[in-house]
Amino acid sequence: MADSPEEIYKSIKKIKVIGLMLAVFTILTVGLSYVELPTHSLNIIVGMILATIKAALVALIFMHLNHEKVLIYKFLAFTITFVLALFILFYASSTDPLVFDGF
């Protein structure tokens, strides 16, 4: 944790830069959504990649996950695992065929 005044001044600067980057990425997201890529799925993928980058900036810098304690990484690892299980299994079960030909 940045505790000395110099470090805090440094981090204030960083925070402002990241804030600006987020705004830029938002503009980029909106702009790209009006560009018709070869398929709409591609639009979704690109949009989600941009959103993930923004989310990562917020999580890593604003929520200081770039230098957090091991314990918190452990919590989050489990949570992310289960959320992914939720996404993947929901998706798989809504597209899974009734007839199964083996692996």
């Binding site: 909106v30 959504s33 959103a51």
Partner: peptide, 10 residues
């Protein structure tokens, strides 16, 4: 950050 593109844009 996720809601905005998912609901408004994509």
């Amino acid at each position: 950050i996720f809601l905005f593109p998912l609901l408004y844009l994509l």
